[in-house]
Design a protein around this nucleic acid. Sequence first.
DNA 1: AAAGTTAGGTAACAATCGTTATTTAAAAAG
DNA 2: CTTTTTAAATAACGATTGTTACCTAACTTT
Lengths: 185, 185
Amino acid sequence: MPPRTIFEKEQVLNIAYHIVEKEGFEGLNARKIAKELNASVHPIFKHFKDMEELKRAVYEKIYSKYQEYMLSGANEEQAYKKMGLSYIKFAKDYPEFFKIIFMQKTNLNAENFIMADNVGDDVIEKGQILTGLSFEEQKKFHVKVWIFTHGIACLVATNTVKFSDVEIEELLTQTVKKLIIGYKN
Amino acid sequence: MPPRTIFEKEQVLNIAYHIVEKEGFEGLNARKIAKELNASVHPIFKHFKDMEELKRAVYEKIYSKYQEYMLSGANEEQAYKKMGLSYIKFAKDYPEFFKIIFMQKTNLNAENFIMADNVGDDVIEKGQILTGLSFEEQKKFHVKVWIFTHGIACLVATNTVKFSDVEIEELLTQTVKKLIIGYKN
DNA sequence: AAAGTTAGGTAACAATCGTTATTTAAAAAG
DNA sequence: CTTTTTAAATAACGATTGTTACCTAACTTT
């Protein structure tokens, strides 16, 4: 009985996602989505109760992208190193997303910073393969490495410093190396 | 001939500054300032051409506060260590200000992240007193320490992790110690 | 083919913002 | 005491939002 749906929920969400990718949530509004969709704002509110609900859906899509990055290479041999590089690569490829998840406190984001307290034992164990430290020492080491990694990621996401991929890898590798030496002496 | 000025420029600026301290620039608008001032919006635009000009003035006041923090203890014996602690303390005491200066790119902030490239030789020399490294080695060391410090500051400013002053000092001291050992071997 | 359901467009509403025209009145100078 | 200058209040305007009432028309079912 009703006319066919032209603008699917998925399309609306995707357009919103790409606007946020470029401009952050500040740049997102109903009329801009409608314009990209070549439609009125109506299809948006057909699929989402209000903008708040849409933003939550966008946030979840963003978070999935982050998880995709962090899971890539989780089973490689240098898994621990890869984790850090993935974190920074995410900040570089999707600076607005990184800022949303890790650099702004909104009503959207959950508790998700990876610290020794809430990091899984598997991550510590992966690190031990690299360092050979005891579990307790490795935990302390991990906090430091992760803060450092977060520091780089923040600089990259805000475009404060323009590191190439090679520079990033060197910086991280060198620092980890020096820290390991420090922990072993 | 004219009525006496009741609301001085300084008062307007101070109120704006305190609003930004609590809520960031997002929370700042003419009517809110007027309300705090117990006045209409008129005195604001008497002293400032437009909100943009007022925001620039607020930014400068914020930046002065940052410099005040960074200069404190610059001549103490542990000047290098103090610098890092001051940076983090600023992030803790004025999280919104820290975010404005170092975590958001706006049309207000200049280039001001302290990296090896644009850091003064005096800072490197101060660091050498602590480490005893060569000038070139000290530069590389400094970049790492500063990224780490920035990492902690970002975590503190966003309230992602709640470190006490003691924990912060320990974390920084320990990391620097391990890195020095690493650089010496 | 008629009827009912509802997708989508149009356009309006209210809220919030920066900004400003107009008015009021305070105070100094004559 | 009158005049002049201008600080401040009132209130409006225009932009930009989220949201929604109302209308049109597409399409399935009968």
